Computed example of a mutant assay.
Amino acid sequence: MSDQVTFPPSVVAAMQAQLPAVAEQTVASIVVEVPSYADAFAGQMGRAISNAVQLALGGFLELATTAGGADASRPIGPALEGAYSLGRGEARSGRSMDALLAAYRVGARVSWRHMSDTAVGAGLSVGALARFAELVFAYIDQLSAASVAGHTDELETTGRVRRHHRERLGALLLAGRPLHDLTPAADRAGWLPPRTLTAVLLPEVRARGAVALLDPRTLQLDDDPPGLDPALELSVLLVPDAGEGARVALLRALDGRSAVVGPARPWTAVAGSYARALRALGLGLRATGPAPLDTEQRLPELVLRADEDALADLRAAALAPLDGLTPATREKLAATLRSWLLHHGRREQVAAELFVHPQTVRYRMGQLRDLYGDRLEDPQTVLQLTIALGPEAPAR
């Protein structure tokens, strides 16, 4: 069988005469058989679909009456452009391609039934009829493919625009911009503000998997977040409403992703959460095992190390009485003094923590009292020693 079919002039004339009626019947069938379009034809979308049906049928007749015969592989520009626009319109309306593809199937069936009846009645040979059917459905496949392409392109375009607006919003949030800047930016991004946001730092390669487990409103910043060294290749996530009881679920979702998690803050004040996470990162704080670093659990270290120079000076002054000791003795007495302060002088608990006999604790505290004298009873000295011997206190 030839790849082309030639229509006699009488057949062409008969089909052209029936074109308006076939278009009307096609639209009517779509309304009945595709519920999603039941109300669409009353408005602009209805006019677009009606025009597309007539354009498609006209394109088909052009295909069928081309000199030398009809070839379904030959593109028909206007009809395909119309189908492409329909696909984009469906994406803009928020619908999937299901309804439009169903409409194409209905259109193919109705068009084939009426146009084949017309063609046979006008004298089309039975031998050409089978090829005519192939031509109809191949043409519908072309239109369907064009609409799918339009739908995909529109989603990609709107997705890029939405991502751009959300990244811009994230940048404004981290910059601590005022509410009158944030509100219109959130509107442009189609983003409903939550009650709180929590800043999370994690490697870029692990961000995509994390986002899939979090609130869909989570904002992600990858392009040079403020204060981050680009060489670290870190992403920033701003996670909605992950405070209080919801924080446990957030930490669980970030397990094994080398994340640093700031505190929950009102959404307009998330810059403070980001600053906390940056501070923990800069101080080199590390979590134990695969769990994320929860800055809420490391507040003493963050406070004590807010001014490293001041802390170093305080330690030097508070621990000066131990300077004349050997390093080993100094380390033992410092550990004993720290435990004594934290346990409020309860010797048995100090001994259990240090794995020594209570008499050893008593002996060491005697040495410390010889070195410090009455200052161990002074509240100000006790405060300074507690800070000096706090988390990660270095042995000198």
Rank of each mutant, 00 (worst) to 15 (best):
S2K: 15
F7I: 02
V12K: 02
A17N: 03
Q18T: 00
V22M: 04
A23C: 04
S29N: 07
V32E: 05
Q44A: 10
M45D: 12
M45N: 10
I49T: 07
S50Y: 00
A56S: 08
G59P: 00
F60L: 05
A67V: 12
A67R: 07
G69A: 09
S73D: 04
S73F: 06
R74D: 06
G82F: 06
G82Y: 02
A83W: 00
R88S: 13
M97D: 09
L101K: 10
R105M: 10
R105D: 08
V120T: 05
G123V: 04
A128Y: 00
L129T: 08
L135D: 04
F137E: 03
F137M: 01
A138F: 06
A138M: 12
A145N: 13
G150A: 12
H151W: 07
D153P: 03
E154I: 03
T158V: 15
T158F: 06
R166E: 13
T183I: 11
P194C: 08
R195C: 09
R195P: 07
R195G: 12
T198E: 07
R208C: 09
T218D: 01
G227R: 01
D229V: 07
L232W: 08
S235Q: 12
L238G: 04
P240F: 13
G243A: 02
A249F: 11
L250T: 06
L251H: 08
L251G: 14
L251T: 14
A259K: 15
T268Y: 04
A269V: 10
A269I: 03
G272L: 11
A275V: 09
A277D: 10
A280C: 07
L281A: 12
G282W: 10
G284L: 09
P290N: 09
A291I: 08
P292V: 10
T295K: 03
E301A: 15
E301S: 15
A312Q: 08
A318D: 00
L319D: 08
P321S: 01
A335H: 11
T336A: 07
T336M: 05
L337Q: 01
L337R: 14
S339V: 07
S339G: 03
H343I: 01
A352M: 01
R362G: 13
L368M: 09
R369E: 11
R369H: 00
D374I: 03
L383G: 05
T386C: 15
A388N: 00
E392N: 06
